[in-house]
């Protein structure tokens, strides 16, 4: 009798030890899927304060961060949303060097499969942009009150800051400040890059600032004073619209 009982307990223990989220036959297999976000300039890792050739002059960059919403994997008519919101900071204070940091984000329990593409919302989707930092727990990306603009009633979707040396004097005397925000400039883009999710799967999403500031094949003219910053008037989103409309061209998805 004891042997029988022990055998039963052992069998039960083995049965439960074998159970995890991926092996339950009732659930489709799933894996952790890591997407690494990177900031580039002209195909190379973006470097803070580095002098980059730009049109006939030079530019440098000192800050780049962005919110991304509703990151969704696509498979025919099927959509698997893997994130509501992410905040990706390529220039955190915790990074001591000049190279911008890559930001890996692990999405857990993504159904395995062959996906046909990925859709990304650039900025904070209106549903979440209607809220304020005090609506979120302190660990939530949208609790960042420094990324919220009271005057706009909007999160600052992204920040790109730097300077230009317009006369090639060696002095970067012209400030470049691009802070985009408000529902009017929220954009979603789809990238038809085949993505296979399986155990250990990963992908890379790159944002190239040279491409961001190349509008339909032409340089975004930073010599024009109005192009050196995004307006602080929420009714004037001309520059913000130009940049947000061009973020798809600045983005490359790789697996």
């Amino acid at each position: 009798m004891k042997k029988l009982l022990l055998s039963g307990m052992l069998a039960a223990a083995l049965f439960f030890a074998g159970c995890d989220g991926t092996s339950d036959p009732a659930l489709p297999p799933s894996s952790d899927f890591t997407v690494t976000f990177k900031a580039l300039y002209d195909g190379q890792t973006l470097e803070k304060f580095k002098s980059y050739d730009y049109d006939t002059y030079k530019v440098n960059f000192s800050r780049f961060n962005t919110f991304l919403s509703d990151i969704t994997l696509l498979k025919g008519n099927e959509e698997i949303k893997i994130s509501d919101i992410e905040w990706v900071d390529f220039t955190p204070d915790s990074a001591f060097g000049n190279l911008t940091v890559s930001v890996p984000v692990k999405f857990k329990n993504v159904p395995d499969g062959d996906y046909t593409g990925i859709r990304i919302g650039y900025g904070v989707k209106p549903e979440l942009n209607a809220k304020r930092p005090n609506n979120f727990q302190s660990t939530h990306p949208l609790s960042r009150e420094n990324e919220y603009w009271l005057g706009w009633g909007s999160y600052i979707f992204n920040k790109v800051e730097g300077k230009a040396d317009l006369d090639n004097s060696g002095a970067f005397g012209t400030s470049l400040v691009y802070h985009c925000g408000s529902d009017a400039v929220y954009r979603t883009y789809t990238f038809n890059t085949p993505i296979q999710v399986e155990q250990g799967a990963a992908a890379t999403v790159e944002f190239d600032l040279k491409k961001l500031f190349t509008i339909n094949g032409s340089w975004f003219d930073m010599k024009i004073p109005a192009n050196q910053f995004t307006s602080n008037d929420v009714g004037n989103v001309i520059v913000a619209t130009i940049l947000m409309d061009n973020f798809d061209a600045a983005t490359t998805v790789i697996q």
Binding site: P133, N134, E145, W149, L150, G151, S231, N232, D233, G235
Partner: peptide, 22 residues
Amino acid sequence: FDEGGLLGLPDAQCFHCHGGIT
């Protein structure tokens, strides 16, 4: 908070570094 443009007030840019409610 850079909100006074329409009222003829220039932006003082303070909130960019001292932002948020706190």
